[in-house]
């Protein structure tokens, strides 16, 4: 059986996500941390939430494309890890994350709110399910 292009694209995205999830959630060379993220998909919507402690609402830089959500947010204060592993002191100053969305969305209809340090972004799917009559 042939897979549709969308199915293949989704499988590639999932494999990519799996590979990405096995790497560290930080990069000391850029001082960036990766936030914990959840993606919940329903019939016509995708809701992406991110835990963003030490971030102020006005500092959140969020961009949305059809298939991606990109977040960059500086921390209100740097986070230091002292005496950790083989690293000397590590210092982090921002969160950064690109989320591959499971399906295409309309960036113009996106809504975001930030409450108690958790960002929630509601995205509307471009291709919605077709309503059919039940006989």
């Amino acid at each position: 059986m042939f897979k549709s292009f969308d199915d293949l694209e989704r499988e590639i995205d999932e494999t990519f996500e799996e590979l990405m999830s096995s790497r560290p959630m930080w990069d000391s060379s850029t001082g960036r941390l990766e936030p914990l993220t959840q993606v919940i998909e329903s019939l016509d919507k995708i809701v992406v939430t991110m835990d963003l402690p030490l971030v102020r609402k006005e500092d959140i830089h969020l961009t949305i494309e059809e298939k991606y959500l990109n977040l960059e947010a500086p921390l209100a204060r740097c986070v230091k890890y002292e005496r950790w592993g083989a690293h000397s002191d590590c210092e982090f100053s921002s969160f950064y994350k690109t989320v591959n969305l499971p399906t295409r969305v309309n960036p113009d209809e996106a809504k975001a709110k930030f409450l108690n340090g958790v960002l929630s972004v509601e995205l509307h799917k471009t291709v919605k399910g077709k309503k059919i009559n039940v006989e």
Binding site: S21, P24, M25, L33, E34, P35, L36, D51, P53, L54, L75, V79, Y81, F92, G117
Partner: peptide
């Protein structure tokens, strides 16, 4: 210390979720 704890326990949370 809540926000600092949230930053520093992200990886344990991710591993726990899995």
């Amino acid at each position: 210390d809540a926000e600092g704890i949230r930053v520093k326990t992200r990886e344990l949370m991710q591993r726990t979720t899995k």
